[in-house]
Design a binder for these strands. Structure first.
Lengths: 171, 171
DNA sequence: GAGCAGAAGTTGTCGCTACAACCAATCATC
DNA sequence: GATGATTGGTTGTAGCGACAACTTCTGCTC
């Protein structure tokens, strides 16, 4: 390998990022589980569906938009389906495929959960940063994601910012 | 609440951060499990111990340095102890407390795993960013952590950059 | 010096995720 | 129009983390 160790500045940045990686997901999860009885991942899956045309997405597409593997999504959707928040039905165009559609109850759940979630994201991230840092963070995220998923097949890219999912007003 | 929704710039940054939160830990975990048969968390626990004087830390202090809760750390250390990488013994100063000490095998494990892990961190994060972005990331991390853990009691702060843990040459 | 609040850890249980194996349908190619 | 490879998705299992309950010990306060 012969890879050089990190210098002090690099290490400082990495330690911080690692701490955020460790602490932030738990904070988001705790709030949503307490206030709306859903996981942060559940919430995003529901939110993505609520933005989709017909409130419907194919499993593969939903997995891509939530940065999840297909097995994971399948389990999650099974649970959401059992709770009546989502329904599955075979895709007419491709009989291998399955569509997931948000039910009315699911839509209500998103609307119920959204304000508290947005407030939490604001409190922990957005409001902690200056406008300049917000843009810096976006570019840093881009750069890291380009390495994590070079093909771009996995990471949700969201070039459409006109009504992007998960944190806007529910339609 | 009456919290405003995120605007496009904020949303862009948040979506990126969320994707990193989802994808990066898995990438680090996969590499370490494959090449050294340890979790990323296992690795950091071992690495923190390897930096500590006498390769020993109290459980509470180790939990703080790894951003973990005490129950979680207790389980992890139990597993590491069963593998002979760590040993536990009661703290003589405070009989409530437990010390965790790195064994020779544990030290060897850290040294074995470190180069590959550092290479992965470099590849996915450090080398993806400019020097300027590295510093920006550190400051952004500081700002977010200040919100996540206002008291500073939890998040590992690491003002000591002379030989910081986890990514430097093992001693 | 008795009593009590809080700190330090451990343990048990439950739910979620990763991984691997698997099935079904489509596509390509001959 | 068969066959092989790939895509789309589900299921089973094992392992890890969150949470709550509990024990032991310390230190305060009266």
């Amino acid at each position: 390998m012969d890879t050089p160790w990190l210098d002090r500045r690099q290490l400082r940045a990495w330690i911080r990022l690692r701490a955020v990686l460790e602490l932030l997901p738990g904070a988001l999860d705790t709030q949503l589980r307490r206030d709306a009885d859903v996981t942060e991942f559940d919430y995003y899956a529901l939110a993505m569906l609520s933005e989709a045309p017909g409130r419907t997405l194919r499993m593969t597409e939903l997995a891509r938009q939530t940065n999840a593997t297909l097995p994971r999504l399948s389990h999650v959707v099974s649970r959401l389906e059992a709770r009546g928040l989502v329904e599955r039905f075979p895709c007419p165009d491709d009989r291998r495929a399955t569509n997931a559609r948000l039910t009315d109850a699911g839509r209500a759940k998103v609307q119920e959960a959204a304000p508290g979630h947005v407030a939490t994201v604001r409190h922990h991230v957005i409001d902690a940063l200056s406008d300049e840092q917000i843009d810096q963070l976006a570019r840093i995220g881009d750069a890291i994601l380009a390495r994590l998923d070079p093909t771009g097949s996995m990471a949700a890219t969201y070039t459409r910012y006109d009504g992007a999912p998960g944190a806007e007003a529910p339609r």
